[in-house]
């Protein structure tokens, strides 16, 4: 699964730390997700989507290998 958290973050002009605070996770978690090293839980994916005012599918996308 890939995501465009980094792009959304750039649009909103917030740091990883700020996003982490908003969705109540550690900065490492945001970093790991952006590096595609961690697939978030459904709860976290929904929280991130809600923070960016988007549908989950607009931020998180399945890849062919999934």
């Amino acid at each position: 699964m890939k995501n465009n958290i980094r792009v959304e973050r750039a649009i909103k002009d917030i740091t990883q730390e700020e996003l982490a605070k908003q969705v109540l996770v550690s900065r490492q978690t945001i970093n790991a997700m952006e590096a595609n090293k961690y697939v978030p839980s459904t709860v976290l994916a929904l929280k991130i989507a809600r923070y960016f005012n988007k549908q989950v599918e607009e931020i998180f996308l399945l890849e062919d290998s999934d």
Binding site: L24, S26, T29, Y38, P40
Partner: peptide, 11 residues
């Protein structure tokens, strides 16, 4: 626990 123990850290 870490300062902010979350799902990634649990993982």
């Amino acid at each position: 626990k870490q300062k902010r123990e979350d799902e990634f850290i649990a993982n």
